[in-house]
Nucleic acid binder design. Structure first.
Lengths: 203, 203
DNA sequence: GTCTATACAAAGATAGAC
DNA sequence: GTCTATCTTTGTATAGAC
C-alpha cells in the first residue's frame, strides 16, 4: 500500500533497512545475525525475509548505500572545477572529518567488507576515480615532482586512519572519546597545513 | 610425548595453530569456521578441540601472537635511546613497510578484531605506549609546536593506510599488485622526507 | 594422538494462521 | 502485512573406536 513518506510513521520495510544498516555497520556481515536485525528493528524475523528475501540481499542494499556515503564525500570535491588545489584539500579533509565524526565505524566496515569481497567495490564503477580527477590535474601543474597517488593516499591516510585505529589510540594514546573529537578538530586544520608544506617542499 | 622441535616434522598442534593463524587473519573471527582451519591444516576437526578446547581459545592464542607482531615493530624503535629522531622515523616507516609487505592482511585484521572486542588490546599492556616514549621526548625538544600524537598518527596513517585501503586502490587507483609493491618502496623514502618537512615547517 | 560418527546449538529461511 | 511456529542448514563440540 501507499508508503506514508511524509508522515511520522515509518514503514516496516524501512525500519528493517535502518536496523540492518546499524547492525551490519557495527558488527560486519559475518558476525551479524538476522535475528539481531529483527530485534533492533523491533519487528519479527519473518518480515526480513518477506521484504528482502535473504540476509545477503539485505546486506547488498545496505552496502551500496554505505559505499555511496563513504566515497560520495570525495568524488565531487575532487572534480570541482571552481576550487583551487588548496581549497580542495581543505574541503576534502573537512568533509571527511565531519562525516566520520558522525559515522566513526564506517571506514573499518567498508574497507573490511571490501577486503572479503572486492567485487562489492568493483561493481561500484569508481574505476580510475583518482587518476582522472581535476585534483590530480591541478597538483601536476603546481608540483610535478609529487606523484599524485602518493599525495592523495597520504591525505586520506592522515584523515581516515585515526578512525580506523581509534580503539588503539584510546589505550596506547590514552585518548578519551572527548579528546578524540578535539583531536580531529585540530587535524581538520593541521592536515591541510601539512599538505601545503609538502607541496612547497624542495625535491 | 617429546615434541621434535628440531626435526622437519611439525606437530599436529603446530599445524593447527599455523592454519588458524592464516585462516583467522584472512577471514576474521566471525567468518572463520573451525572446519576451515582443520581443512587448511590437513587434519581432522576433532583435533582442534583436543588441543585447544574451543574456537575462542584458539583464536585468543593467534590474536596474541599477531598483536605482538603488529605492535612489536614500533615499540622498541620508539624507545631506542641510541637513534636520532630522524633515524627513528626512517626505521619505523621502513620496518612497517617490510613487515606489511610480508603480511598485508595484518592491519585490517588486528584493527577490526580490536574494534569488536577492545578488551583484546587492553589486556595487551600497551597503555600510554606513545606518550611516554623516547620518540616523543625527542620530538618535543626539536619542535615543541607539534603535538606528538598528531605526528605519530600521521606517520602511521601514511604508512599503514595504503594496506588498509589496498582493494580500493586497485580499483579506484588502477593499481596492480606489482605497482602496489613499487608504490610502497617509494613511500619508504617519501614518508620520512615529508615528515621532516613537517617538522621544519614554520608555525 | 588421530580418526569417524554424532550430538547439540545457532542461524537462515519458510509455512501457514491471523 | 505481520506474527508464531517450524524446517533445514550450518557450525561447534564431544564420544568412542582405533
Amino acid at each position: 500500500m501507499a508508503k506514508a513518506k511524509n508522515s511520522i510513521a515509518v514503514s516496516a520495510e524501512e525500519k528493517i533497512r535502518e536496523a540492518a544498516r546499524r547492525v551490519f555497520t557495527k558488527k560486519g556481515y559475518a558476525a551479524t545475525r538476522t535475528r539481531d536485525i529483527a530485534e533492533e528493528a523491533g519487528l519479527n524475523l519473518a518480515l526480513l525475509n518477506y521484504y528482502f528475501r535473504s540476509k545477503e540481499k539485505l546486506f547488498a542494499i545496505v552496502m551500496e548505500e554505505r559505499m555511496r556515503q563513504f566515497f560520495g564525500v570525495i568524488t565531487p570535491l575532487m572534480n570541482d572545477v571552481t576550487t583551487t588545489l588548496d581549497q580542495k584539500i581543505e574541503r576534502i579533509v573537512s568533509s571527511y572529518v565531519d562525516m566520520l565524526l558522525q559515522h566513526p565505524d564506517l571506514p573499518l566496515f567498508i574497507l573490511n567488507e571490501i577486503r572479503h569481497n572486492s567485487d562489492l567495490f568493483d561493481r561500484f564503477q569508481a574505476d580510475r576515480l583518482i587518476q582522472s580527477s581535476h585534483f590530480v590535474t591541478q597538483l601536476k601543474e603546481k608540483q610535478p615532482d609529487i606523484h599524485p597517488l602518493h599525495f592523495v593516499v597520504s591525505i586520506l591516510g592522515m584523515t581516515i586512519f585515526p578512525f580506523v585505529a581509534k580503539p588503539v589510540l584510546r589505550s596506547a594514546g590514552g585518548i578519551s572519546q572527548q579528546m578524540f573529537v578535539e583531536m580531529m578538530e585540530e587535524r581538520r586544520k593541521l592536515i591541510p597545513k601539512w599538505a601545503k608544506a609538502i607541496i612547497k617542499m624542495k625535491p
